[in-house]
Design a protein around this nucleic acid. Sequence first.
DNA 1: TATGAATGAGACTTCATTCAT
DNA 2: AATGAATGAAGTCTCATTCAT
Lengths: 190, 190, 190, 190
Amino acid sequence: MRPRDENKVTKAFEAALQIIGQKGIAGLKMQELARASGMATGTLYIYFKDKNDLLHQMYLHYVGQMHRIIWGEVTHQADYPLRFRQKWYNYVRFVQQFPAEMIFMEQYHRSPYVSETAVHQGDSLLQPLIDVIEEGQQLGYLQTIPAHLILAYLCGSVQEIVAWSEDGSLPPVTDILHWAWEMTWRAVSK
Amino acid sequence: MRPRDENKVTKAFEAALQIIGQKGIAGLKMQELARASGMATGTLYIYFKDKNDLLHQMYLHYVGQMHRIIWGEVTHQADYPLRFRQKWYNYVRFVQQFPAEMIFMEQYHRSPYVSETAVHQGDSLLQPLIDVIEEGQQLGYLQTIPAHLILAYLCGSVQEIVAWSEDGSLPPVTDILHWAWEMTWRAVSK
Amino acid sequence: MRPRDENKVTKAFEAALQIIGQKGIAGLKMQELARASGMATGTLYIYFKDKNDLLHQMYLHYVGQMHRIIWGEVTHQADYPLRFRQKWYNYVRFVQQFPAEMIFMEQYHRSPYVSETAVHQGDSLLQPLIDVIEEGQQLGYLQTIPAHLILAYLCGSVQEIVAWSEDGSLPPVTDILHWAWEMTWRAVSK
Amino acid sequence: MRPRDENKVTKAFEAALQIIGQKGIAGLKMQELARASGMATGTLYIYFKDKNDLLHQMYLHYVGQMHRIIWGEVTHQADYPLRFRQKWYNYVRFVQQFPAEMIFMEQYHRSPYVSETAVHQGDSLLQPLIDVIEEGQQLGYLQTIPAHLILAYLCGSVQEIVAWSEDGSLPPVTDILHWAWEMTWRAVSK
DNA sequence: TATGAATGAGACTTCATTCAT
DNA sequence: AATGAATGAAGTCTCATTCAT
């Protein structure tokens, strides 16, 4: 339980992501995960107490990563519409670059392995996004609609578009992104 | 002789939905399902070849149901914007009234039990929705953006809003629906 | 349990024989047997108390049949060597014409379904064969070797030859029978 | 790390043989087998893919063992009749000392678990026996009768005699063996 | 009597977790 | 710490038998 080799944790997360992307959380077997991570079954249990703990830690890890990416490239001095747009693009980019992460995070919520605390911790990461929306409303750029509603609307549309794009039901994300942004900005801007 | 009780299939579907809504597909146990459906374990295997087949048939059943509901109450003579709005409301109502069905259909896609044919059959039901969007574009009501993109955008935003509403992260759907519609119509209309 | 339609019993026996010939007693399922016999599962249980009873009755039926065939065509006035040969041929013919019956009778002995009484009744049918052998010994035609030993020797060699012939490991029985008889007669005659 | 204990395979084979000898292949339950082999149920599935595979491997194992025993004690320099007799005795000894093995091998052929390849591999082991018979024919010691026919004749008679002896229908094998050999040699020798 | 749907004990098998090395 | 063989509870599925029609 005291990881000596942090590298192993990363290996396990990545392999788990891969497997979950294909077969869902229900399809993740500890033995298969160990082999895919290049370690023995027992080793997994040195780094993670059990399967629940593995998924819990994994959830926190990827929520954190998502958070950092969304807050990554924003020009702090820019005017609001540009900053908003940058954040939206960051979010799209994240959802696009890390589809497996998204699938995992969605599945985790409704799985028999879910942990209350993990979800709470995950949810708390949304607050800064709420703040950005409320800032835009105060500046008169965005519709005065409950910020959470706007956030849900934005997240949902982006996720679905990227998901369909991955499926092949839609063209590659980069080819359709400007349209998606047009709809989005029309929807939320004043 | 006792006639084959087709009612049992429905019973099984409903009980399965209930269980999946709580514990996810991974948490669905055939024995528990049988008990919850008021029948013996073996009886399930009269109506369904195995667990895969149960979920496959279930998926088709609920995709069909969703389809019928969305197409349900539309005033055929009404002008396009009204008809479009009715469909959107129907979809919201479905997502809202049948959260378990939605959860199941989403989970099924990325589960170890998924069947290629089931997903294909499910996807084909989207075509009429595409048709509606394209009609609106030809009539000049909707943005000329790929219809699939619009559909993904609409489905995603609705699903997420309803989901958050169910979570308690948002107020009841009925209280926020008009705002959601405003955003939606601004997004897609010309 | 009070068979009205004796025809159904025969149908069941024949179908069971067919199935056992292919998959062994362990492979005989009551439902499959019912369908193969052209009746419903429940009907089997009108004619037979349970699977054990079915096999028990079947065993007695076919042991009796074998007995009648072996004792069938013998020229009572003929001299001993001819009569002996006729019986041996009868036995071969039986084993050959009723391979499924033989397989069943052999398997039945070492099955979890075996009934003591059935086997005793079956064994008692061998006595007349013993009598024939002892008659031949008294008349000085056969080696003075324990009659049961001779009988086992005869039965075993015939069964194996016919079995291999059915398998394809040997040519058709009729083509090789004279050689088998030569070996047999050399073995037992004085 | 605990090394893979190949001993466990042998343990499983022996316990399975014991159980099959008593209750037939149909009576072999994986859980009971595990307990009788001194291991957990799951352990069986480390060494064998499933019940079919267990029986398949077991069949090959015992066919091989039989083969080695039959070819065991033969005086290579001895003249043909003696060598032939030694082989026959070896075969008798095998059938006698390993009745459970014989029962298993016979039952396996006509079981729902049988594998084509296993039987083929088993059959191929008969070739050397055929060779011995053909050698005797070329040397003028044995009747010129198809070698397979002679082999079937020999195997069948031996098996049946030993079986009856085990049953109690015949005296102990050792007490009657010389008579059996006399019959056998008269049957096949020129 | 005949039917075949329904039953549920019990079989086969999996897989999260432990443990000897 | 690392390994992977071993464990056994728990899951899926079968099939002899019963039962309502």
